[in-house]
Design a protein around this nucleic acid. Sequence first.
DNA 1: GCTTAGCACTCGGACGTTCCGAGTGCCATC
DNA 2: GATGGCACTCGGAACGTCCGAGTGCTAAGC
Lengths: 346, 346
Amino acid sequence: MSEERRLEVLRAIVEDYVQTREPVGSRVLTERHGLGVSPATIRNDMAALEEAGYIAQPHTSAGRVPTDKGYRLFVDRLAEVRPLSVAQKRAIETFLSEAVDLDDVVARAGRLIAQLTGQVAVVQYPSLRLSGLRHLELVPLGDRRLLVVVITDTGRVEQRFLDAGAGPGGPSDGLELDEGTLGELRARLNAAAAGKRLSELAAAFARVVDSVAPELRPVVQGVADLVVETLGEEGEERIVLAGTANLARADMRFEQGLSPVLEALEEQVVLLGLLTEMAADGVAVRIGHENRLDGLAETSVVASGYGTDGDTVAILGSVGPTRMDYPGTIAAVRAVARYLSRVLPS
Amino acid sequence: MSEERRLEVLRAIVEDYVQTREPVGSRVLTERHGLGVSPATIRNDMAALEEAGYIAQPHTSAGRVPTDKGYRLFVDRLAEVRPLSVAQKRAIETFLSEAVDLDDVVARAGRLIAQLTGQVAVVQYPSLRLSGLRHLELVPLGDRRLLVVVITDTGRVEQRFLDAGAGPGGPSDGLELDEGTLGELRARLNAAAAGKRLSELAAAFARVVDSVAPELRPVVQGVADLVVETLGEEGEERIVLAGTANLARADMRFEQGLSPVLEALEEQVVLLGLLTEMAADGVAVRIGHENRLDGLAETSVVASGYGTDGDTVAILGSVGPTRMDYPGTIAAVRAVARYLSRVLPS
DNA sequence: GCTTAGCACTCGGACGTTCCGAGTGCCATC
DNA sequence: GATGGCACTCGGAACGTCCGAGTGCTAAGC
């Protein structure tokens, strides 16, 4: 009973099951995959594989089905990379390069993954915390309110309102924040902050605060606080989904129904946590119960980071049933992550 | 056979069916709703209602089920408005007012509707075409590229790249778009455009183009074109969904499965078209086949416009099975639309 | 003229039984 | 160690029966 053949049997089971969605028995295994031994032999191997926890029987007198552990072994040792076709690669490249802005880039990446994998795509916007500041804009709204617009070097644009009259020691009622004053502030703040990461920003702003006229300090401080808060805020991470309809396709029966799956996907905070955990070099795979979320117990997640110059600024991936085409999904996710990194504003 | 009682019977059928999800027969009708007549009488009325197309039998020896036409009559003439509780209203108000920016407002509105109706929420971002321009920002990116940021009076922020060297008669290679020049342009453009709607913008910009130094004209023209294009572009309309998981709940069986429903909801362009069609004073209802989308043949859409000062700038609504609680859904959609209008930046 | 009681009729779905075949584990043999 | 043979299990399809909800119709009643 060679160890090698046993693995071969596992691979055959996984591939067959992924394709047919039926528990696979010893006979079809010998017929459809050229294993060159008899069903009885296979049965012995299967018994061993079941003993070791790689496969299981839904019920007596049914074929075998891979377990999470079985898929894990398959992904780690048995799956062969299957590169995309040239046509597919070109399609990805052109589709992404036609995007008009960051929203569009992210949306297109999602649609690509959903389409290539036939599953649900998850794409995180470039994280604000990992982005540098490109430009800071102050827009007077009248009534002493300011609109602060933060533009990052990853292309995100965030806006916040600031009540310039608020806070202790706010400017006296007579203070005018005219376009000239604002322009000066804008120039100074931008000069101090350009290109800086969150960790360096607070200090840079502090120096600006000290350098302006005393009556302006509260306002500048307010702006500085708001910017730091905006870039650092956990809640501002954003995720988009695509291809949810794929989950409802007939060939995607989930044991527990898809309610829990959809619910898990809607919990953006939790989902984000899962993705963040998965950040790693290259593509990471979480199978079934490996991701702790109950709703995703019957699903696997294939994810990869992306970002300019090897800097990971966010994560994207594909979610599907544990019984998914791992090689294909991994190839698709990797390809989209790569092209996305290339297209991002640098 | 009074006309009045017949309508009463229809109302009872709709209400009972919505609640129980079972075809309703003549007996339970007399028992559960105080109609004061015998089952046989009801049967006569039912035969008439069926003849007129308001109800139907799934099969012989089953009770009756309302048709789309029946729901329509119910909504138009029989449904009583059921105002939300004070607690609910307060919850809406506080939850919306805690939003930190437009994205957050829209997302929260969606979650509210999804939660109040137990269905899928659809919320459109304030339409760019219906928004006025609040502020225009020009950010130099070096290499003669500009980032043009458009901020509307509805709070949306859009960004576009502009290659200032492109186009016929572009600036000579030596031309520097320094901060000073840009500042001047920014001020002029904003002065010309502030508060203007799309229709008036082109003319206003044209005057600015004429007033600047000849070598700057191509750049200014480029910015003007880009802004007009951005505000006018159909593709830039945005929609978010919330509560998709509600569709998968056990009590939401669709005849055709929910695949077509999810697919229809993912087709943002088509969905947007549907919502736009529904724009009207107050809340509009589309029942079953009334909305032409095949995927939504088994669903109804309840939608309402929202916007400051009675100006409708976008639409939001709820999508659920035709067998939905119309009074409750209508009340929820209307309430959220109202509070949203109040919270929007004015 | 509308309402009602009575009654024959229909039909979907629940329930019980049978039957079949896929698939297994084990054992003796090669 | 691999294989053929064999008894065994069990899920699910197929089929028949039965029951009751619900109907439409007719004739009698208010």
